[in-house]
Design a binder for these strands. Structure first.
Lengths: 341, 341
DNA sequence: AAGCTTATTTCAAACGTTTGCGGAGAAGAC
DNA sequence: GTCTTCTCCGCAAACGTTTGAAATAAGCTT
């Protein structure tokens, strides 16, 4: 912290009045004479006075800062969430401290400690892929700091949450494939300890069952990134598993699958259709463009932040928790629309 | 700030000793008896005591926080920079407050005010596309808060900087196109008020001149995003401008160009080669894959943060400013390699 | 002129922590 | 028994701000 920044005391000294008078003058308190107010405000502007937010935080026992724990900022979805968070927070006069867990449990635990030490007024969390233990979240609760989970929530943990209807979106995506003529669809699934991983799988299964199609355990493969998708596709092709569609848990995985298929000479979508999830920057620019589910990251960020701020600003924080389900919409592009043959 | 969080005073009261003793016991000060130390540390652990970072900041006049002003977090390059910043900062025990300017001058000015009010110990800045006036940076300097510019610097502003050698990278990229047989290369340029915009253009020009190729003013078009690239390409095709290569100021622009070319039936790279800049997530997945310049965002983040921390922690901050030039390397992919015909 | 308002300002404490200094008590030196 | 030297601890001030309460000064009554 620079020693150069000037304080209320500096103004008081210069004007030979007390700091309390300066404070009140700046806040336009009725007890202060016009004359003094003018003098104070003029000098404050001249010296470019900025109230010390740190001192204010201490005094008011409120930091006007919210903490964000996010798995990895480099994903389009998560960075849009952050944009949404920032916009709402800044409009409300709150700062944002962002901590990446990098999908690591240990790092996530450290993140919560950091945020508590910094006395953030509330925390937004999307849990890491690794996290299977939740003590650190209970610790936040013990300290009476409000938490809102977004996208990746903790099953069974009572708290405000903002999620997309993953189950329904996955169901609709799969049904779209079925309507397009797919009969043997595999699912590249995410980690099953994440609720979203489970839900997307369940939605996929529901669509298959509803259409009276076969479901097979070996059609559900754990693959949630580019490289794993590549390996899974190679495996499928080498084993000559007979399929006509791939529904992937996210776009990177879908694109990895599509690439490998095309490299091996498989036509997408005519031989195998591909659909992704959580529409990002990438989906529009592949060839064919990738059908995907738009998760509305920005909106998720704004909604989560609004819910958090509401609780932070409530005098009585003990009202019931809220779960907001955003609806995701399927963006149909070339990768899933078989050409008439 | 939650009232639930416990303080040194709570521990002192419980143990019937003074807060100063607790403070010293926690810091293992030699004046304190073993007995007391043990009692204090035990209770602190039991109550899950976390030092109040806000109070510490105030006392030590040092917030252990650095501020980051970044144009738009949703770009792969910038989010990797943030990852680099965070990793170095956290290892050094510093927090990070991130502010997006959203490429707006006004917002950038507000960002600097916010960061100063929060008494950050230093600031990392990449200026917005709009910024043409720099008073707000001089204000930071007046307040003796160290600043490091990364990627997009302020011409003529004396400060630490981390940049990539945009000139050289653009030169090499263009030369690569020339060596591949291009003779009539247009440049989709960025805003010329940004140094990087100028440098990339100059590098392009140098390569052309050096090869004895023609340069034309109308071959330099201001286009720095997907949509502008689309329009520029349409214009080129409609006007039947005879060219065989496009060097774009960034990847999104290059991809926009490639898309439009392909939609109009132009073969990339054989008829027109395309090269981008600042290799991101996108470049690998187009077809053909995009040749681009890898700007090493993560490294830029780490280096900038190291330079900033060094200055923050220096007792005498008046040593000369440092300009670190990272070298970017050209990643050659399909979009620029014409097939032998 | 003494008392009473009213207007304006200052005092002091507080937020949680650190730290120089002084002090109580015990132990050792002579 | 007095003086010195440790050992261990508490006091108080400080960081910058806010705020209830007390103080001051000036203006009005009567």
């Amino acid at each position: 912290m620079s020693s150069g920044l000037i304080t209320i005391k500096d103004i008081a000294r210069e004007l030979r009045i007390s700091p309390s008078t300066v404070s009140r003058a700046l806040k336009n308190h009725p007890d202060i004479s016009e004359e003094t107010k003018i003098a104070v405000n003029e000098l404050a502007r001249k010296l470019n006075y900025q109230p010390n937010a740190v001192a204010l935080s201490l005094k008011q026992r409120r930091s006007n800062t919210i903490g964000v724990i996010i798995p990895e900022i480099v994903h389009y979805f998560f960075s849009s969430v952050i944009s949404g968070i920032e916009d709402v927070a800044y409009d409300a006069g709150f700062n944002v401290i962002i901590c990446q867990s990098n999908e690591k449990y240990d790092r996530e635990v450290v993140n919560t400690r950091t945020l508590l030490a910094n006395r953030v007024d509330g925390i937004l969390v999307s849990i890491s892929k690794e996290t299977q233990q939740f003590d650190h979240f209970y610790k936040i609760r013990e300290n009476e700091v409000p938490v809102v989970f977004y996208d990746r929530v903790v099953p069974g943990f009572e708290a405000d949450q903002v999620i997309v209807d993953d189950f329904d979106a996955a169901y609709r995506a799969t049904r779209h494939m079925i309507e397009g003529g797919c009969k043997k669809i595999v699912h590249f699934a995410g980690p099953q300890n994440l609720l979203i991983g489970q839900l997307r799988k369940e939605g996929y299964l529901k669509a298959l069952r509803e259409a009276g199609l076969e479901t097979r355990n070996e059609w559900i493969m754990e693959a949630d990134n580019f490289e794993k998708a590549r390996l899974a596709v190679l495996n499928i092709l080498d084993e000559k598993v007979n399929i006509d569609g791939i529904f992937a848990v996210n776009d990177t995985t879908a694109i990895g699958a599509m690439h490998t298929l095309q490299k091996r000479g498989v036509k997408v979508p005519n031989q195998i259709a591909v659909v992704g999830f959580s529409d990002g920057r990438l989906s529009g620019i592949t060839d064919p463009a990738l059908t995907s589910v738009d998760q509305h990251g920005y909106e998720m960020g704004t909604v989560a932040t609004e819910i958090l701020l509401k609780r932070i600003l409530a005098e009585n924080k003990n009202y019931p928790f809220e779960t907001r389900v955003l609806n995701a919409n399927l963006v149909i592009r070339g990768s899933s629309v078989k050409e008439i043959s």
